[in-house]
């Protein structure tokens, strides 16, 4: 997640939802709009984590690739029954639901969901284009999020990452050579080393200092070696970072006026 103005707004919105849910005991909802491909997995993960964190039901609208132009005889996309399956789905009981719609109907679908589902507090998306489309019509705030770590294999390796890999290999090799040199130095003159290191007293500094030096060199080498072999710690999902960190339980319950419907949201005042 890139730290942007949207991050702060999401935090504030999430905090509002927590206080509202606490005050009313009523679950809130958030809507995530992205594509069906793997590039939207971070968005879905983020929405799921955010929903879980703030006690909010999550509706994910996945936009399928543009359909071929409808033939004159083909039926027009209908929203009848769009909401009914959500209510009936077992997944919804756990507060998460995914929905697929053709990409060209995104505006209408979000409008319909907002009208029918109620209590949709804000919309998340991973696309500038969708944000632009929805900002024109949606009554809720729309936030664009951006994944920090692209999916492995999702995008071709960039020149930068190739350069970084080469740099990692060189660093690992250098640390490896240093480690081997240190081991060689000790075992080359093992007799002398043993004589000095087992004298006791102040000579105790020798074995203690040696293991420290070895642990720094060999430890750094081992760490980079595992990294190069692809064995790395599961990355902390950065997208979750600001969510888990931000909403603190509030000491006092704030009550405030809240409107779910903006009757003027469809009015286009720009031309007037």
């Amino acid at each position: 997640m890139n730290h942007s103005c949207d991050d702060m707004k999401i935090k504030l919105a999430a905090r509002d939802i927590i206080s509202l849910a606490a005050a009313t005991g009523c679950p809130k909802r958030l809507l995530a709009v992205g594509s069906t491909g793997p590039e939207s997995i971070p968005l879905r993960d983020y929405a799921a984590a955010l929903g879980k964190r703030i006690g909010c039901q999550v509706i994910v609208v996945m936009l399928e690739s543009p359909m071929p132009a409808p033939e004159p005889a083909s039926p027009v996309f209908s929203f009848a029954g769009l909401v009914a399956p959500i209510g009936a789905a077992t997944g919804w009981q756990r507060g998460f639901f995914e929905l697929r719609i053709p990409r060209q109907y995104v505006k209408e679908a979000v409008e319909e969901l907002s009208r029918s589902m109620k209590r949709i507090e804000f919309i998340l998306t991973d696309s500038d284009n969708i944000k632009e489309i929805l900002s024109e019509t949606a009554i809720q705030p729309v936030f664009r999020i951006e994944a920090v770590n692209p999916e492995p294999g999702g995008s071709p390796m960039s020149t930068d990452s190739k350069a970084n890999t080469m740099k990692d290999i060189i660093t690992t090799a250098v640390l490896g050579v240093i480690t081997v040199a240190l081991y060689t130095a000790v075992f080359w003159k093992a007799d002398l080393v043993m004589r000095l290191f087992t004298r006791g007293g102040a000579y105790a500094a020798l074995p203690i200092g040696t293991v420290f030096v070895f642990s720094f060199a060999h430890g750094a080498f081992a760490s980079r070696l595992w990294s190069l072999l692809g064995i790395q710690a599961r990355p902390k999902t950065e997208a979750y970072k600001n969510v888990t960190a931000s909403p603190q339980p509030q000491k006092t319950k704030r009550t405030r006026a809240y409107a779910h419907v903006n009757p003027f949201h469809n009015l286009d005042l720009r031309g007037k």
Partner: peptide
């Protein structure tokens, strides 16, 4: 370790061989 080293009981060769394996293992 400081206590044992002051009495000259540490066999640094054994320590370093074990350390070679354990530093790889502990990170894994």
């Amino acid at each position: 370790s400081i206590n044992w080293a002051m009495h000259g009981m540490v066999d640094i060769r054994l320590t370093l061989i074990i350390l070679a394996g354990s530093l790889l293992g502990v990170q894994l």
